[in-house]
Deep mutational scan, measured.
Amino acid sequence: SDYEVNVNGIHHRFHNISEELIKFIEEALRRGEDLREIIKKVRELLG
């Protein structure tokens, strides 16, 4: 049904976003950045 496609589409989009965010955060932590600064950047990215 349309509803299922829609829900799956939304889930898929969020899954991709969270994968990208996790990579972004892991790389920043590897560079020794402060978690609070990383979260601030993530918030800015998400608008």
Rank of each mutant, 00 (worst) to 15 (best):
residue 29 L to D: 03
residue 10 I to C: 04
residue 32 G to P: 05
residue 23 K to N: 13
residue 17 I to M: 11
residue 41 K to R: 12
residue 29 L to T: 06
residue 26 E to R: 06
residue 1 S to W: 11
residue 17 I to C: 02
residue 45 L to S: 11
residue 18 S to G: 09
residue 40 K to E: 14
residue 18 S to C: 03
residue 33 E to K: 08
residue 25 I to C: 02
residue 35 L to W: 06
residue 15 H to V: 09
residue 35 L to M: 10
residue 29 L to G: 03
residue 39 I to Q: 06
residue 18 S to K: 05
residue 31 R to K: 14
residue 28 A to N: 15
residue 33 E to G: 06
residue 37 E to T: 10
residue 21 L to V: 14
residue 30 R to F: 11
residue 25 I to N: 00
residue 46 L to T: 15
residue 11 H to D: 09
residue 20 E to A: 12
residue 42 V to T: 07
residue 14 F to W: 14
residue 34 D to Y: 07
residue 30 R to N: 13
residue 45 L to H: 11
residue 5 V to T: 02
residue 42 V to P: 00
residue 31 R to T: 09
residue 36 R to E: 09
residue 21 L to N: 08
residue 39 I to A: 08
residue 46 L to V: 15
residue 28 A to H: 13
residue 27 E to F: 05
residue 11 H to K: 11
residue 34 D to H: 08
residue 43 R to L: 13
residue 29 L to W: 04
residue 2 D to A: 03
residue 45 L to I: 11
residue 24 F to C: 05
residue 41 K to M: 11
residue 7 V to Q: 14
residue 30 R to Y: 14
residue 28 A to E: 15
residue 7 V to C: 05
residue 27 E to P: 00
residue 23 K to C: 03
residue 13 R to Q: 13
residue 8 N to H: 07
residue 37 E to R: 08
residue 10 I to E: 15
residue 26 E to N: 09
residue 5 V to E: 01
residue 4 E to F: 00
residue 35 L to Y: 02
residue 45 L to N: 11
residue 37 E to N: 12
residue 24 F to M: 11
residue 12 H to E: 12
residue 4 E to A: 03
residue 36 R to G: 10
residue 47 G to Y: 04
residue 4 E to K: 01
residue 12 H to T: 04
residue 34 D to K: 06
residue 44 E to D: 11
residue 32 G to V: 05
residue 30 R to A: 07
residue 30 R to I: 14
residue 43 R to I: 11
residue 44 E to V: 13
residue 7 V to E: 04
residue 21 L to G: 10
residue 16 N to E: 06
residue 38 I to F: 03
residue 17 I to S: 04
residue 8 N to V: 00
residue 17 I to T: 03
residue 43 R to T: 15
residue 36 R to P: 13
residue 4 E to W: 00
residue 46 L to C: 05
residue 1 S to R: 15
residue 24 F to D: 05
residue 38 I to G: 00
residue 21 L to S: 09
residue 36 R to N: 14
residue 39 I to W: 01
residue 19 E to R: 06
residue 9 G to Q: 02
residue 8 N to T: 02
residue 33 E to D: 13
residue 22 I to S: 03
residue 28 A to V: 06
residue 39 I to T: 07
residue 28 A to Y: 10
residue 36 R to M: 13
residue 33 E to P: 05
residue 14 F to M: 00
residue 19 E to V: 15
residue 20 E to I: 09
residue 20 E to S: 11
residue 16 N to P: 00
residue 46 L to I: 14
residue 29 L to S: 05
residue 4 E to V: 07
residue 21 L to D: 07
residue 8 N to D: 13
residue 18 S to M: 05
residue 47 G to W: 04
residue 37 E to V: 09
residue 17 I to D: 01
residue 9 G to T: 02
residue 30 R to T: 11
residue 38 I to K: 01
residue 20 E to Q: 14
residue 11 H to W: 06
residue 28 A to F: 10
residue 6 N to M: 04
residue 37 E to S: 13
residue 7 V to R: 04
residue 23 K to H: 12
residue 24 F to R: 06
residue 26 E to F: 04
residue 18 S to T: 09
residue 35 L to A: 12
residue 15 H to T: 08
residue 37 E to M: 08
residue 15 H to S: 10
residue 37 E to A: 13
residue 1 S to K: 14
residue 25 I to Q: 00
residue 19 E to G: 08
residue 26 E to Q: 08
residue 10 I to T: 15
residue 31 R to S: 12
residue 47 G to E: 14
residue 29 L to R: 07
residue 39 I to E: 07
residue 13 R to M: 15
residue 34 D to M: 11
residue 4 E to M: 03
residue 19 E to L: 11
residue 11 H to V: 11
residue 13 R to E: 15
residue 46 L to E: 11
residue 46 L to Q: 13
residue 23 K to F: 12
residue 1 S to D: 06
residue 39 I to R: 04
residue 35 L to P: 10
residue 9 G to A: 01
residue 26 E to S: 06
residue 42 V to A: 06
residue 27 E to G: 12
residue 14 F to K: 01
residue 12 H to A: 10
residue 29 L to E: 04
residue 21 L to R: 02
residue 35 L to D: 03
residue 30 R to Q: 14
residue 22 I to L: 05
residue 21 L to C: 05
residue 33 E to M: 13
residue 7 V to I: 12
residue 39 I to M: 02
residue 26 E to L: 07
residue 45 L to M: 12
residue 11 H to F: 08
residue 2 D to S: 04
residue 41 K to F: 09
residue 6 N to D: 09
residue 10 I to G: 06
residue 29 L to K: 05
residue 3 Y to C: 02
residue 30 R to E: 13
residue 5 V to M: 03
residue 34 D to E: 09
residue 21 L to M: 10
residue 15 H to E: 14
residue 15 H to K: 10
residue 35 L to V: 14
residue 34 D to I: 08
residue 35 L to I: 15
residue 18 S to E: 05
residue 16 N to M: 05
residue 16 N to I: 01
residue 20 E to M: 08
residue 44 E to R: 09
residue 41 K to G: 08
residue 37 E to L: 10
residue 8 N to I: 01
residue 36 R to W: 13
residue 11 H to Y: 08
residue 27 E to C: 05
residue 33 E to A: 09
residue 14 F to R: 00
residue 5 V to H: 01
residue 11 H to A: 06
residue 21 L to K: 05
residue 30 R to K: 13
residue 2 D to R: 00
residue 2 D to E: 08
residue 5 V to K: 01
residue 4 E to H: 07
residue 23 K to L: 11
residue 22 I to R: 07
residue 43 R to N: 15
residue 14 F to T: 00
residue 35 L to S: 06
residue 30 R to M: 14
residue 3 Y to E: 00
residue 38 I to T: 07
residue 34 D to N: 07
residue 38 I to H: 02
residue 33 E to H: 12
residue 37 E to I: 12
residue 27 E to D: 14
residue 10 I to L: 07
residue 26 E to Y: 05
residue 32 G to R: 04
residue 46 L to W: 09
residue 28 A to L: 14
residue 47 G to V: 11
residue 13 R to D: 13
residue 46 L to Y: 05
residue 31 R to V: 11
residue 9 G to W: 00
residue 29 L to I: 14
residue 16 N to G: 14
residue 11 H to E: 08
residue 6 N to K: 09
residue 14 F to C: 01
residue 35 L to C: 04
residue 44 E to W: 09
residue 41 K to T: 09
residue 36 R to D: 10
residue 15 H to D: 11
residue 28 A to T: 09
residue 35 L to N: 02
residue 41 K to V: 11
residue 19 E to S: 08
residue 21 L to H: 06
residue 2 D to T: 02
residue 21 L to F: 06
residue 26 E to P: 00
residue 24 F to K: 08
residue 12 H to P: 01
residue 41 K to I: 11
residue 3 Y to L: 07
residue 27 E to W: 04
residue 3 Y to Q: 01
residue 24 F to V: 09
residue 6 N to F: 02
residue 16 N to D: 15
residue 26 E to T: 09
residue 11 H to T: 11
residue 7 V to F: 06
residue 34 D to P: 12
residue 12 H to V: 12
residue 6 N to V: 11
residue 13 R to L: 15
residue 17 I to K: 00
residue 4 E to R: 00
residue 31 R to D: 07
residue 32 G to S: 14
residue 17 I to F: 02
residue 1 S to C: 05
residue 13 R to A: 13
residue 2 D to M: 03
residue 13 R to N: 15
residue 22 I to Y: 03
residue 10 I to K: 10
residue 14 F to S: 01
residue 15 H to I: 12
residue 14 F to I: 02
residue 12 H to G: 05
residue 42 V to S: 04
residue 16 N to V: 01
residue 5 V to I: 12
residue 40 K to F: 09
